[in-house]
C-alpha cells in the first residue's frame, strides 16, 4: 500500500463520511425520536432530555456538521472538481459535477442552519441562555422548523452525494 494521492483522498473521504454519519444520525435522532417523544414524557422527567441529553447531542451535532463540511471541501479540492461542483456543473455541463454540487450546496446550507439558526435558538429554548418566557417558545419553534428543513434537505443531499459517486 502506498500513501499516495489516491490513499489520502480515500482517507479524507472516510473522515467526511464518519463525520457525516454522526451529523445526519443526530439530526434524524432529533427529528425521528426526540422531538416526537417529548409530549409522551412526564413533565418531571423532561429535564433529563432538555438539560442533559439534548445539550450533549447538540455538541456532537454542530461540531460533526462543521467537520463534515471541512472534510468535504478538502475532498472536492483533492478530486479536482471544487469549482465545477460549486458552479453546479454549469461551467462544464458534467452531470457528476452537477450532482455533487447540489449535494455540496445543500450541505453548506444545512451547516449554516445548524450553526446560525438551530444552535442559537436551541440555547434559548433549552434555557442555556437567559431569555424572556415569551421568547422561549418562539426560539423553540424556529429551531424546530429549521431542523425539519435540514431533515427534508438531507434526503436529496444524500441522493446527490451517492449518485455523484455511483451513477454519474
Amino acid at each position: 500500500m502506498e500513501f499516495d494521492h489516491t490513499w489520502w483522498t480515500f482517507f479524507i473521504r472516510w473522515l467526511h463520511v464518519l463525520s457525516g454519519f454522526m451529523w445526519i444520525g443526530l439530526l434524524w435522532y432529533f427529528n425521528f425520536v426526540q422531538t416526537p417523544s417529548m409530549p409522551k414524557i412526564p413533565d418531571e422527567q423532561k429535564p433529563a432530555i432538555s438539560k442533559v441529553i439534548a445539550p450533549a447531542a447538540l455538541f456532537w451535532f454542530r461540531w460533526s456538521a462543521l467537520s463534515t463540511i471541512i472534510f468535504g471541501l478538502i475532498l472536492a479540492q483533492m478530486n479536482g472538481y471544487l469549482t465545477e461542483a460549486l458552479s453546479l456543473g454549469l461551467s462544464d455541463h458534467v452531470a457528476k459535477h452537477a450532482a455533487i454540487g447540489f449535494g455540496m450546496w445543500m450541505g453548506l446550507i444545512m451547516m449554516f442552519n445548524v450553526w446560525f439558526i438551530i444552535w442559537p435558538n436551541q440555547k434559548k429554548a433549552l434555557g442555556m441562555v437567559e431569555v424572556s418566557d415569551e421568547e422561549r417558545p418562539k426560539a423553540a419553534r424556529r429551531a424546530g422548523v429549521t431542523s425539519r428543513v435540514n431533515t427534508m434537505l438531507s434526503i436529496p443531499m444524500l441522493y446527490a452525494m451517492v449518485s455523484a459517486q455511483n451513477l454519474y
Binding site: 416526537p36 454549469l90 452537477a98 422548523v145
Partner: peptide, 30 residues
C-alpha cells in the same frame, strides 16, 4: 398548512425535492 409540521410531510417534501433535483442534474449534464 406547512408540510414541515409533520414528519411524513417533511419526508415527502424531501422526495419531491429529490425528483426536481434529478431532473435538473440530467438537464445540466445533457
Amino acid at each position: 398548512m406547512n408540510p414541515l409540521d409533520s414528519l411524513s410531510g417533511t419526508i415527502i417534501s424531501g422526495l419531491v425535492f429529490t425528483v426536481i433535483m434529478v431532473v435538473l442534474i440530467n438537464a445540466i449534464g445533457a
